[in-house]
Amino acid sequence: MTAAKDLDTGLTPPPVPGPDRADGAPEQPVDMKQAVLDGLGGPSGMVYTTLPVVAFALAVPFMSLMAAIGAAIAIAAALAVFRMWRGEKLMSALGGVFGVAAAGGVSAMTGSANDFFLIGIWASFAGGVITLLSLLVRRPLTGVIWNAVHGGAHPWREDRPTLLVHDLATLAITAVFAGRFIVRQWLYVADSTAGLAIADTVTGFPLTALAAVAVVWAFRRSTKRLVKTDTATAQD
């Protein structure tokens, strides 16, 4: 669940810094800190993703599994309507509904309340594997993304300080995914639905925000070393 929300931000990258545009106007720099914060959704994003999970965990002991799933989906839908009323993009607002519905579908098919968290558990595992592999092949994922956002033409892997900061940022993301998987899988095996709901909240937005700090740092260092240098050289 939270891994899915980590990936689906609905964020449109801002203009890329670099040489002047064809119309002669300089490109505006990418505010990566604001971009990442917008993608995470801020404190309100934590509320949007936590409330349906909390509602499910609270409802399961007192009503049928299907009723608890219905309650979670209803709350997710109400939050989506509220987000659209606030002017958020349709797909961004509906992302939480799709995630809760998918989690509820798995739980309904297996008849287990714990399986409501199964997609999130294995999404965390997959995310950890992908980011770890990107480190092993010397193409840390944050660096690949940074380069793509900035036009895809910067020699970031040949610049050792830039490669190092992306190694560290990608490692931070890998640690977040691994931590989520280990904690939730342990609680899943222990058959603790309440524990899974708590872990979903604690290891969701807070850990994502910590990893985002590392990503913002890596993006800023890369931009300072490569993009601004390239721009100054082009102007000379």
Rank of each mutant, 00 (worst) to 15 (best):
L163S: 15
V60P: 01
A234I: 11
L51E: 06
L37G: 06
Q235A: 15
L226K: 03
P43F: 03
L58N: 03
L135N: 04
D230T: 11
H154F: 12
I173E: 00
K224L: 10
V60M: 07
A175H: 09
L196K: 02
L132E: 02
V100T: 10
P29D: 08
P52F: 00
L51R: 03
A148Y: 13
K33I: 15
T2P: 09
G104R: 00
M91P: 06
I130K: 01
V129M: 08
F117K: 01
I198W: 10
A55D: 07
G70V: 05
T201A: 15
A3T: 03
P19W: 14
F177D: 00
W186R: 12
D8M: 15
F125T: 06
D8A: 13
P19G: 13
K224C: 14
L136N: 14
Q185F: 05
P161R: 09
I198T: 11
V30M: 09
S192L: 12
R225K: 13
P13E: 10
G128Q: 02
T223M: 05
M66R: 13
P26S: 12
Q34T: 13
F116W: 02
P140R: 01
A197N: 02
T203Y: 04
A212W: 00
M1Q: 07
M1I: 12
A113T: 05
L40R: 02
I145N: 01
L132I: 13
S64F: 08
A74R: 05
V137A: 13
W122K: 02
V165P: 00
V213C: 14
P155M: 11
G195C: 05
P13K: 11
A178C: 11
L90E: 14
P26Q: 13
L163A: 12
G18P: 03
M63K: 11
R225F: 04
F177C: 02
T233Y: 12
F98Y: 13
A169H: 02
A197G: 06
T193L: 10
A72T: 11
V165M: 03
S112G: 15
G70L: 08
V213Y: 08
D38S: 08
F98R: 06
T174K: 00
V227W: 00
K5P: 07
L51C: 10
A214R: 00
V213F: 09
L171K: 05
N147V: 04
H166T: 01
T229R: 12
R184Q: 12
A35R: 04
F219H: 04
L79W: 02
Q185D: 10
L90I: 12
D38M: 07
T110P: 09
A172D: 06
K33N: 10
F125R: 04
A67F: 13
G204Y: 00
P19A: 11
T170S: 04
S222D: 03
G195D: 04
